[in-house]
Design a protein around this nucleic acid. Sequence first.
RNA 1: GCCCCGAUAGCUCAAGUGGAUAGAGCAUCUGCCUUCUAAGCAGGUGGUUACAGGUUCGAGUCCUGUUCGGGGUACCA
Length: 542
Amino acid sequence: MKIQDMLIEALKTLQIPQPTQIQIERTKHPDYGHFSTNLAMMLTKTLRRPPMEIAGEIVKALPKHTDIIEKVEVKAPGFINFFMAPKELQTVVDEILKSGSNYGRSIQGKGKKAQVEFVSANPTGPLTVGHGRQAVLGDSVARILEWNGYEVEREYYYNDAGRQMRILGHSTFVRYRQALGFSDEFPEDHYQGEYISDIAKKIVEKYGDRFKDDPENEIFKNSAEQAVFEDIKATLKRIDIEFDCFYNEKSLYENGEVDAVLKKFEEIGASYEKDGAIWFRAGQYGGSDDRVLWKSVMDEATYRLPDIAYHTTKYKRGFDIVVDIFGADHHATYPDVLAGLKALGYDTSRIKVLIHQFVTLTRGTEKVKMSTRKANYVTVDELIDEVGKDVVRYFFIMRGMNSQLNFDLALAKTEGEENPVFYLQYAHARICSILRNAKIQGIGLNEPFDEGLLQETEALSLLNVLSEFPEVVGICHDTLEPQHMTTYMQKLATAFHKFYTDHRVLTSDRNLSVARIALVRAVRTVLSNGLSFIGISAPEKM
RNA sequence: GCCCCGAUAGCUCAAGUGGAUAGAGCAUCUGCCUUCUAAGCAGGUGGUUACAGGUUCGAGUCCUGUUCGGGGUACCA
């Protein structure tokens, strides 16, 4: 960065040793210029002099580059504020138009493979609002990594062998009997959802009463699983989420990964037998207490063992970065998995675990409890029907994942068109409309322009916001939090709407019009890139 | 008991590594459409950032304690 180089040069002339890091930040308020540094305040400790004094000397010693920096100010308690020259701000238009849909992309992940694992709900029923948050969050994290140059794989891990699935199969069986006219009672702890009856009816259509006395027949569980999975995939597709891989836990037993972990643990003494069960010394590897890996009672593994084995495959499959996304209810399980991997000698710093808090559903002031069993949930599909794909996606990532998300169903309906997502899309549509009009007036979109004509306050602040986009992509990468992009997009749209209100793009002055067209084309590019970054469509008309 | 997350405007929420005057939307009040999309813009009202201490040039952000809410703490996943 140019400002940084200038500061380093100033420190050299003053013979002040350079601190390990020079912080340069964008300012919040225009009064403080475009960038500022706390360098003088950082130096006050080592130099033992007042920061204002140091700041003054640094500013005097700064090399003069009036084409880049228009003004430098010192403000109490010792900030050095840089005001960029219009000429410097104006260069971004050309840069954006040249880069187009690549503007903002970073290459820091180039050549690296990343995997994002999310949703991973067992196929017992439709995706609910709770899953929705994770689905959108996970896909957004994947998009963040893609924008930063990684080759990204989206993975869905599931288990179709557990107790839940047995109950699902039996639920289907009972509905099947009922569909055949038997008056079997439906057990309370079974899956109450109507989708089970639909699946059962299809079995009746296809096979009649052939299985009426065969509750153990695999057809019940298998048909249910298949149907549910198809629904889940269809739902995800509606919000533009597609997985590259569905990984079945069962395969870890079939391909020997589970056994391999057990054997290795035994070899290195990370496990021991007690009370007929096999325990993992999690405490020795950064976990809290020792945990059971293999149950004595049922003679089967606990979930930890296949989870550890599963994660070893992530290393074996060559991912440089692995992101696991869990709901708050799973936060206690991952330390054991990490401890297991550490025991096996893997570098666990490659694994990033993101925990998101729950979605609390309310209808007005009334809380809606959700349970897949009792079928009293709101599905992602219903949500999409209600507010549309873009709003669903935006809604789930506009809040930080650490906060519980309150979803008021009553409000979701009324907010409708006042939703912040329309604000962004409207800015894009407005620009498209201007460009259509420009064409009608016979102004070409690619005519050479004089960027020096973009000098109004509103234009300059818009240019400043535009130049921030690549940094936001970087912040999203560092934090793996997509909401930084939504916050930025609001800021960009605001800057544009403000410019639009105060200045016409198509004026009687042709040169000015051409320059402003270039500006709004740059805005459109960044809007469109940002919307694609968060997976929201950029409409040309609204 | 112990662990994780949260508490910011009347409501829902922002605020990258500690920075300056804590921001949006909704709600409410007032202005702005014979000119490119008013799904917009400008302005008003609204805050002791749960509470009490601490760290420092500086704390919504870090530390300690308290209160309240959510989630966990299994030979369930």
